[in-house]
């Protein structure tokens, strides 16, 4: 899982780089517009270690932001799963807010909270929170009738059991959504750093952008890609292990 993620990224990255180089040599562009391979390798040699540290800094905010989002999405999703007034209100609100580009709110957050850790964290959480919430709401609001019937009929149904049944039956969907939301959280953090922050890979990309240094940007993208692939791979592996532990341990399911 982990290695598949990494080599998939490497294939996509190499394809993108090949396209850029094809444009460069096809249109006869200078190194200032699109750097050559030698310049990219040279930049990588100088900057890669620093960029990896910057990405790790960004990743720490991403992970924290994603955890907050997951917790909030489950909290609100569990409350909003009922077809009560509150549940319907939460669902309608989530669908409407989801339709709004949250990243556009970033300047307001920076005006109110200034640069720094909290602003980055808040934007990262907000960006991955709403897609997560919609998935969790969808899963939690869909009854698994053929399992739940017995517990309802015999008066044994409790909200904890209901949530457990629905989460278990949709474990594949949940792990996919959580692994996918890592990218969103990372994007949110980078955007936050890009707009106004003094650390993280987004900040480094902003500096490279102001210097029109495409080689630095390409190296930064490489380090982001590798680290997010590893992070997603770890999330998927954890999800797989949970499934293996929870699902039939001996002999597997009946074919």
């Amino acid at each position: 899982m982990l290695f598949r993620r990494i080599y998939q990224f490497l294939i996509v990255y190499c394809l993108g780089l090949t396209c850029l180089l094809a444009i460069k040599y096809g249109a006869g562009l200078s190194n200032y517009v699109i750097p050559g391979l030698t310049l990219i390798f040279d930049t990588a040699h100088r900057m890669l270690a620093g960029y990896f540290l910057d990405v790790l800094n960004t990743l720490s905010v991403t992970v924290l932001g994603q955890m907050i989002s997951i917790f909030m999405a489950f909290f609100v999703g569990i409350i909003g799963r009922k077809s009560s007034w509150a549940g319907s209100f939460i669902k309608v609100m989530a669908y409407n807010i989801q339709a709004y580009p949250i990243v556009a709110l970033a300047p307001i957050i920076f005006i109110l909270m200034g640069d720094g850790f909290l602003s980055r964290l808040l934007i990262a959480s907000m960006i991955c929170y709403f897609p997560l919430l919609l998935s969790v709401l969808g899963i939690m609001a869909s009854p698994i009738k053929d399992i739940e019937h017995f517990y309802i009929a015999t008066g044994r149904m409790r909200w904890q059991l209901e949530v457990k049944i629905r989460a278990f039956e949709n474990l594949n969907k949940l792990t996919t959504v959580i692994a996918g939301s890592a990218t969103l959280a990372m994007a949110g953090t980078i955007v936050a750093e890009f707009i106004a922050a003094d650390q993280g890979i987004g900040y480094s990309i902003r500096i490279a952008l102001y210097q029109s240094d495409l080689a630095c940007i390409l190296v930064a993208l490489f380090s982001i890609g590798i680290i997010i692939s590893v992070y997603q791979g770890i999330l998927e592996t954890v999800g797989e292990q949970m499934k293996t532990k929870w699902f039939a341990p001996k002999g597997g399911d009946l074919l």
Binding site: D146, F150, W246
Partner: peptide
Amino acid sequence: ILYSYNQERLPGW
């Protein structure tokens, strides 16, 4: 009154 039917499932955990 209880009603049981043939497509019911027990949780898998």
